[in-house]
Simulated scan of single mutants.
Amino acid sequence: MTTWITICDTCKRENWDGGPEGETDGERLAEAIEALIRADGPVRARRHSCLMGCKNGCNITVQGAGKLAYTLGDFEPNEDAAQGIVDYAALFEESETGQVPYRQWPQSIKGHFVTRHPPIPEE
């Protein structure tokens, strides 16, 4: 199975300054996450324009078939946040249900959870 990290590439934090080359904060976070993902690994990254969590930018989701899905937000677009997100996604991937015990969460994602969604029922 594949675990997906979906990154809002249009996110702009409240103090957005135009970033290097006019990049959004979401684009900067996406680049940092993508740099950590193996192309052939079970954790993948994709960009999506607007996850509608503008008050909590930068936003990402972690999803996998048949598992709980999580939205996280209010990240700084930096390598520490990206590493925590990727590390959490790897733990999510290993979990049968998508739940990861709190004690295993990387420190850099604690306090960033926004929502949890149940898996879509199989028919």
Rank of each mutant, 00 (worst) to 15 (best):
E93Q: 12
L29A: 02
D87K: 08
G66N: 10
E94W: 05
P77N: 08
V62C: 11
E123G: 15
Q83A: 13
A89S: 02
P106Q: 04
I120D: 13
R13V: 12
A90K: 14
E14V: 10
S49W: 05
N15G: 15
P101L: 08
H48W: 10
T115Y: 02
Q104D: 15
E14H: 13
R116Y: 01
R116W: 00
L72G: 06
D80F: 13
T2P: 08
A90S: 11
R47K: 12
E93C: 07
R44H: 09
A35Q: 10
S108K: 12
R103E: 04
L68I: 13
A30R: 07
G41H: 07
G41T: 05
P101M: 07
A82E: 03
R103A: 04
S95T: 01
T115C: 06
K55I: 13
V86R: 00
W105R: 01
V86H: 01
F75D: 07
R38P: 08
R103W: 07
G98I: 09
T6Q: 03
E123T: 14
R46L: 09
E79A: 15
G18C: 00
Q63E: 12
C8G: 01
R46W: 02
N15Y: 15
D25I: 01
S95V: 05
L91A: 04
Y88H: 12
R38L: 08
P118D: 14
G64H: 03
R116D: 02
A32H: 03
S108H: 06
T6C: 02
P20A: 14
T115N: 08
L72S: 03
H112A: 10
V114N: 05
D87M: 02
